[in-house]
């Protein structure tokens, strides 16, 4: 009985494994966070994502480009907000202006049609684990205390060592500073991927997805939602 259950589980994994290999993602806009209740009545923190048009605008093929991929347009945009190369792609695809345009690697791009939207249910399902990519909120040039949670010196009692860095290494041996040493610099405003987030709910009519947990970026920021890469779904 249990073996059967296991088998069924594996078969299910194989099916979603096919979805995983495809790795097509959906583009969405982060709207903000709230909470919803699960079947047991427990509150879940969720981020609400408004999905875009997700229309296929271009394709890459092994023959022409050396790899297989499709290009997707996110949200309907004004023509003036797109540059000429982007407009060229959209004109060729004969679709209304969309932004941003993002590429996703696929196993075989011939099965996709330019001008067709990506169906939500082909990519994500309720209860599935997803990876979400976005650009994190920029914090500017920051010191090691904020950037890497380094300790700091006393702020008073005559101390002149407050928040600055301490030693950056030994002397003659090794005679150099090790690579990757934590130092002050730009913090945030980088591409971040958060893995293994659960899809709590999908509203296909309103094109909304509720994802458990926090997503990178500010409200209104663009995020990419993909089935998770590092775990079976």
């Amino acid at each position: 009985m249990e073996a059967n259950g296991e088998q069924a589980e594996r078969a299910k994994n194989a099916v979603s494994g096919a979805i995983k290999k495809m790795t097509v993602g959906l583009l969405g806009k982060k709207l903000g966070m709230t909470q919803v209740f699960d079947a047991e009545g427990l509150a879940l923190p969720v981020t609400v994502v408004q999905l875009g048009e997700n229309v296929i605008v271009d394709k890459r093929s092994k023959e022409n480009n050396g790899y297989e991929a499709i290009q997707i347009g996110g949200f309907s945009a004004k023509e003036k907000s797109l540059n000429k190369p982007e407009m060229g792609v959209l004109k060729k695809a004969n679709v209304a202006p969309l932004a941003p345009l993002r590429e996703f690697r696929v196993a075989d791009s011939t099965s996709y049609t330019i001008g067709q939207p990506i169906a939500i249910e082909d990519v994500i399902k309720e209860g599935m684990l997803v990876d979400v990519r976005g650009r994190s909120i920029g914090k500017g040039f920051q010191g090691t205390v904020k950037r890497y949670h380094a300790g700091r010196g006393p702020m008073s009692h005559g101390s002149k060592f407050h928040r600055s860095m301490g030693s950056i290494g030994p002397g003659t041996t090794p005679g150099r500073v090790f690579k990757g040493l934590h130092m002050p610099g730009q913090m945030g405003n980088v591409n971040v991927c958060v893995r293994h987030l659960q899809v709590v709910k999908i509203d296909a009519d309103k094109k909304l997805v509720l994802i458990k947990g926090a997503l990178p970026g500010c409200k209104g920021g663009i995020v990419e939602i993909k089935p998770t890469k590092t775990k079976w779904n």
């Binding site: 709230t34 609400v48 309103k206 909304l208």
Partner: peptide, 11 residues
């Protein structure tokens, strides 16, 4: 956000 307000209103 209006969308979030709608989600919450149902709960």
């Amino acid at each position: 956000n209006q969308v979030i307000a709608e989600i919450e209103a149902g709960l």
